[in-house]
Design a binder for these strands. Structure first.
Lengths: 217, 217
DNA sequence: TTATTAAATGACCAGTGGTCAGAAAATCAC
DNA sequence: GTGATTTTCTGACCACTGGTCATTTAATAA
């Protein structure tokens, strides 16, 4: 029964065609400024057909993120492959993430929007899960490096995953603050210096930093 | 000429009425799901009138942020007023920011959207400037504390403003990652623990951390 | 009272995201 | 081949959107 499989392949192909068309327009114009009509025209299908492949505009938009996160994971693999110490690894991952936010600016922006949640509200559980898994996978690069630092007793922490979230969040926030989609900027410092200091501070902060039960002031 | 002034006051009042109505709906439903028609109905004005006071939907939305940033600044004033060391100050500011993101969740979200830039693209330079100034003002609390640490030689850094941006960005990112508007969560660690660790790491990272011209690996 | 200015209206516009009955195309059964 | 069945696709249609603007209404000035 090769026909069923061929049809399935063709359906997948259509989906990818739609995604490719959507990518062009979303990346050029942003989410709000891009309409389903435009996408339909670009991919030479009727608008109704788009809804056979994606439940709504948000789902189509966030689906792009899957590719983006995959690219990011590849970058992370490359970043750590020839590194040995946890410091080298974390530093390389930090820089790889920053580089990703430059090279794949648009993906980075979708990622921020995904985590912010306003656009994400209407996407399917399935797609959400896909993105979450990819994100967790990215986090694991960080937490592995942290775990290594814990093993060698250079980092005094209990939960490497928590630390990974902090590292990831810190860089995401700092980059976002500086590199928004609006052309206007009010932050004086150059971004690469910011990233350098940021990575440096975070790594230094992890060294021999006893976990303590401070009162929350 | 008291009439001119009275009219000006009345106009300001109208503007505030519109903002109040918009706030209710935007906070309940989010930006995209709230329409200008709804807001007009809520404030008992025609839709056209809204556009006499705000140039577009985004401008109306982001205008809310001005109030939010003002609240945040007040919280920052309270946070540092009885603190002496830079560590106490930074810690208190960090917690105050987190508390703000909980108490004024919606304002925090607008702030993220503002910095992300997708929604912000169409707002006036005037409003942008207002928000930028308020943000810089908030940053100055942080950079003042950092400056204090530099003065006492406990922090080895050159540009306190850059550090302030990093601190602000780090917390913003970490909170955003964990507290998106989507109900679904995939980050296991409790947020307050994350914040505690985050503040701790950042402060430790600042202590005696020589600024160096490391190659970017 | 009349003229002037300011404020508010709502019908109107092009376009939106999304739906769905029906057309078109491909596959299956014979 | 033919007709029945299933899958894919279409585009007219819907309620509604953000935004505009000639016109009306109200307030002030002369």
């Amino acid at each position: 029964m090769g026909i069923k499989e061929r049809r399935k392949r063709e359906k997948q192909f259509r989906k990818k065609e739609i995604l490719a068309a959507a990518k062009v327009l979303f990346f050029e114009q942003g989410f709000a400024a891009t309409s389903m009509n435009q996408i339909a025209k670009q991919v030479e299908l009727s608008k109704g057909t788009l809804y056979l492949y994606f439940k709504n505009k948000e789902e189509l938009y966030v689906s792009l993120l899957v590719e983006g996160l995959s690219l990011m994971n590849e970058a992370f693999v490359r970043a750590v492959q020839d590194k040995t110490t946890w410091i080298e690894k974390l530093s390389a991952l930090g820089w790889a993430y920053y580089q990703f936010s430059v090279d794949q600016k648009q993906f980075f922006h979708i990622n921020v929007q995904f985590h912010h949640g306003e656009i994400t509200k209407n996407i399917s559980d399935d797609l959400y899960q896909q993105c979450a898994e990819a994100a967790i996978n990215a986090l694991s690069f960080l937490s592995d490096a942290v775990q290594q630092g814990i093993s060698t007793n250079e980092i005094k922490q209990e939960d490497p995953l928590s630390i990974a979230v902090i590292l990831w969040g810190s860089l995401t926030g700092t980059i976002m603050l500086h590199e928004g989609k609006d052309h206007r900027k009010f932050i004086p410092a150059p971004i690469d210096l910011l990233i350098e200091k940021s990575i440096n501070i975070l790594i230094e902060g992890l060294k021999n930093n006893e976990p303590e039960d401070k009162a929350k002031m």
